[in-house]
Write a protein that binds this DNA or RNA. Sequence first.
DNA 1: ACCTGAACACCGTTCAAGT
DNA 2: ACCTGAACACCGTTCAAGT
Lengths: 221, 221
Amino acid sequence: VNARRARRAHRRTPNRGHRIVEAAIAILDAEGEGALTFRALASHLATGSGAIYWHVTSKDDLLAASAEAVISAVLAAVDGSADPKKAIRAIALGVFDAIDAHPWVGTQLSREPWQTAVVQMFEGMGGKLQALGVPRRARFYAASTLVSYVLGLAGQYAAAARMLPQPDRAAFLGTVADRWVALAPEKYPFLHEMSAQLRDHDDRKQFLAGVDLILAGIASL
Amino acid sequence: VNARRARRAHRRTPNRGHRIVEAAIAILDAEGEGALTFRALASHLATGSGAIYWHVTSKDDLLAASAEAVISAVLAAVDGSADPKKAIRAIALGVFDAIDAHPWVGTQLSREPWQTAVVQMFEGMGGKLQALGVPRRARFYAASTLVSYVLGLAGQYAAAARMLPQPDRAAFLGTVADRWVALAPEKYPFLHEMSAQLRDHDDRKQFLAGVDLILAGIASL
DNA sequence: ACCTGAACACCGTTCAAGT
DNA sequence: ACCTGAACACCGTTCAAGT
């Protein structure tokens, strides 16, 4: 019932629904996930809080629509005609940068992986596998590995951003690295060895290195 | 202040804190993430809801402790002396099975990736890379790729379980596959091609295939 | 058709008061 | 030292009443 209501209204007044999503994105970007409230949204739009339910089924629906708006724009901007490896990298990097700019998108993508935004990623990356020479049987697994990896790192950046309103990410990484060093070296030799790299690694490079690692694995099929 | 309180109490009455985590796990397993409430937990333990705060700092703290309890047990059971590839597969599969049995753990791991449970995964899998002949410089990226992939798939299974109280996962996958087939074939050729495999794929096999794909990429370094 | 805003049924967290 | 449970400050969502 609610779904039909919302759909019908969405057809008649697409602007209103669009403006609601826009306002939600503005709040999420400016004040974080915790600040998105139907009351805050209503006062931002100068209406009653109940009015929003005419255009949107629920808060989950609103979050999904907001994330989809961000990701669709990113995927539409990727040049599909490029070399397949480059195209896969471009999609992955586009999603990464979008999540860097809007960390709440990361939370949302990993919360509802069957939503349109994720499905579009699956199609975008998976569609390039045939041109890479990946056998038919292996394409499903290869595409799902790529998507899972992107979603996994997306969630991690979102989590870091959630607890860091200010962008002092370097300081935070230093704190975590200190904690690694404080652990017993004989129980955690790898963490000790890696603490320096955690401290001054480059997020974007690390992300791309993972994509390339998976692509190298795919090439071996 | 709260942290010191909780820590001091934890030292004096470790049983109480342990029993709280046990009760939380029981509720999460039996009734899902939405059912874990301080009121529900209190009535389950036959105390006041405020009493729990003497042993636990916050709900986030309680969830982290619960996830850590599950994952630590899994990692402790893995045979570290095995062949390095086998050990990495065993850790990944152990975490996968734990999340399959306790879907809320998946949500929790991707929500707070610096927590002890994730750090232990990083050490466990990363510590095997040297024996695999991975160059020192590449180990950080390789380990983070493995962990991100596991967390990514963990989040997806948790999401699916969150909306499916009953285990009719097969029916759900069928619904999603139907939606893929209903999309425009010329815009989504890959989804059309993969819909049959989505319908009857094996979750565990898919997960392991991704791990092996990343291991193959690692081997090429 | 769409908006208003009070009301409902919850939350996590705190805290004076107890033992 | 630890527990009790009412109270506080919120939520998402609903719905009678308006225009």
